[in-house]
């Protein structure tokens, strides 16, 4: 496993604030990993994302992305490697058509025209939005807009894709489709794409290889989704959602039923209940 992102003792406070938004943050993310970041509103998740993209510079500590140290000098190298998609699909469009929009970032970076056309097509193909290439972005659904936003990022061939609550505004169908899309991208690009998804959606976080919990500016937990989501008390303490199967286990315990301690998915708990009831 090769690290692609490392933070060492990073602290950041906004200029108008005396409390740091992130405190003494040290962590490593490996090349090709899909990491979910969870934490209540205001815990510092977006600040973390902005530091990775050098939209903000750390007050203390050091950040390296793909062996490049995040400094003002390396700012553009860093930004080319780290692509971001934000929460509100409506604030991310500049082009008159979907294809223009995807081309925009490349125009700014002086990518030659032929190359640009190839990349626009490839990126739209990747997010299954090719049939919409000539449409007006404003007329797309929320989920389609987010696909286009991802295509615009992919066209710049980043090494890291950050989704900052990119599914938060979508309806359940749009959300499921986005998660499926990230699975497909990962299947295609393998270790060439590292994904960081900041989310409140348990299904999205459970799809990741690893989950990190940020609480009030500090990294308080890192683990497999099964480890992090099995700890209902801790999730509640951090103001986070508890998976349904874990909630049900708690309710059964309260009713005097002995349930397995280890983490169970919905399917896992259904199977356990079925077996237990069948043998009654």
């Amino acid at each position: 496993m090769t690290p692609i992102i490392s933070l060492s003792h990073v602290t950041y406070a906004y200029p108008n604030s005396d409390v740091p938004a992130l405190r003494d943050l040290s962590l490593t993310i490996n090349k090709g990993e899909w990491v979910a970041i969870i934490g209540h509103n205001g815990s510092g998740k977006s600040t973390f994302a902005k530091l990775l993209n050098y939209l903000l510079a750390p007050d203390e500590g050091e950040i390296t992305v793909n062996d490049v140290v995040a400094t003002e000098e390396n700012m553009w190298t860093i930004r080319d490697m780290v692509g971001m998609v934000f929460q509100n699909p409506d604030n991310q469009f500049v082009g008159a058509t979907v294809a223009d929009d995807v081309a925009f970032g490349m125009e700014n970076r002086g990518v030659p025209r032929d190359e640009m056309i190839t990349r626009v097509d490839a990126a739209l193909e990747e997010v299954q939005m090719m049939p919409f290439a000539d449409r007006e972005p404003a007329r797309l659904s929320g989920g389609q807009k987010q696909r286009v936003a991802i295509a615009s990022v992919l066209a710049l061939q980043p090494k890291i894709l950050i989704l900052d609550e990119a599914t938060a505004m979508l309806d359940p169908t749009g959300r499921r489709e986005m998660i499926a899309l990230v699975h497909e991208l990962k299947a295609h690009m393998g270790d060439d794409l590292t994904v960081i998804s900041i989310t409140h959606d348990i299904d999205e976080a459970a799809s990741a290889d690893r989950v990190m919990v940020i609480n009030d500016g500090e990294l308080v937990e890192t683990g497999l989704p099964a480890e992090v989501f099995a700890n209902a008390d801790q999730l509640r303490r951090f103001g986070l959602a508890v998976p349904f199967a874990e909630q049900l286990k708690e309710q059964l315990r309260l009713r005097g039923i002995e349930v397995p301690n280890e983490y169970l998915t919905t399917e896992g708990l259904v199977t356990w209940l079925w077996q237990s009831i069948s043998t009654k």
Binding site: L248, Q251, L252, L254, R255, I257, L273, S276, I277
Partner: peptide, 15 residues
């Protein structure tokens, strides 16, 4: 809701 679910399951599990 989860209470209705847990009540009925607990009854079944208690035989």
């Amino acid at each position: 809701d989860i209470d209705q679910l847990a009540d009925q399951l607990a009854a079944r599990l208690n035989g």
